[in-house]
Design a protein around this nucleic acid. Structure first.
Lengths: 121, 121
DNA sequence: CTGTATCCCCCAGGATACTG
DNA sequence: CAGTATCCTGGGGGATACAG
């Protein structure tokens, strides 16, 4: 009787929240974007992601690896070297992130305007 | 000389983070989904979003209104009545959220598998 | 019915120091 | 170079009571 609203179905909302907890943290998206296309080493990511600490970079990468979004390959040379890269699943996520980016760019100005209107009231 | 990597450009990453802070909080997406298509009253949203507290619902709605994603219309009847609905901008965001939902559904199984593999190691 | 005001706890994540 | 181990703080968000 009520509307379909399939989107609101419990499990579906839970899934969305899951993704958001994955990419909604402070650094995951940044790291994923830096891994776009190429493989990168730990320090490289550290520098590119600017004020991230090693601790958080490490934690972020572990989370992403756990979910099968990045691969971690260790070469036991001296000094040690570790490469990170996106998996196919990570790449597919990056595509969704691009959608997000598109929406953000298209609406940034409007949102800022809306905010100042709201605040000055 | 280095790769284009337009996606990683500073401002662009900042925009993405902005969106994520908007929809990455605990309740925004839930509320937005419940507003899909129709206008809803405060208590209606409160019940539909299950264990959300009034405090958080109020805060979430204010945030969404501030960004021009939902409208708030007050009828001064007795007892009071307030209706919330998505703005066009909110609807456009909902579309992006659907993309997210699609990705989540398509990858949920794989991610769970990847996790258990990672944890059992 | 539609909120606001308080209090309070927990933990994401920063700073810093140390290790193989 | 590539991390781990500790310590510590801010604020997101729950519970509860009150208000128009």
């Amino acid at each position: 009787m009520s509307q379909p609203a399939e989107l609101c179905e419990e499990g579906r909302l839970a899934l969305i929240r899951d993704v958001l907890e994955r990419i909604g943290d402070k650094w995951s998206v940044v790291v994923i974007c830096q891994l776009d296309d190429t493989t990168r080493r730990f320090n490289e990511l550290s520098r590119m992601s600017s004020p991230i600490t090693k601790r958080m970079l490490s934690a972020t990468l572990q989370g992403l690896e756990r979910d099968g979004l990045v691969t971690r390959t260790v070469y036991d040379t001296k000094p040690p070297r570790v490469d990170y890269a996106l998996t196919p699943r990570g790449i597919s996520l990056l595509k969704v992130v691009r959608e997000l980016a598109g929406w953000a760019e298209a609406n940034a100005a409007g949102i800022l305007e809306s905010r100042s209107g709201y605040d000055a009231r």
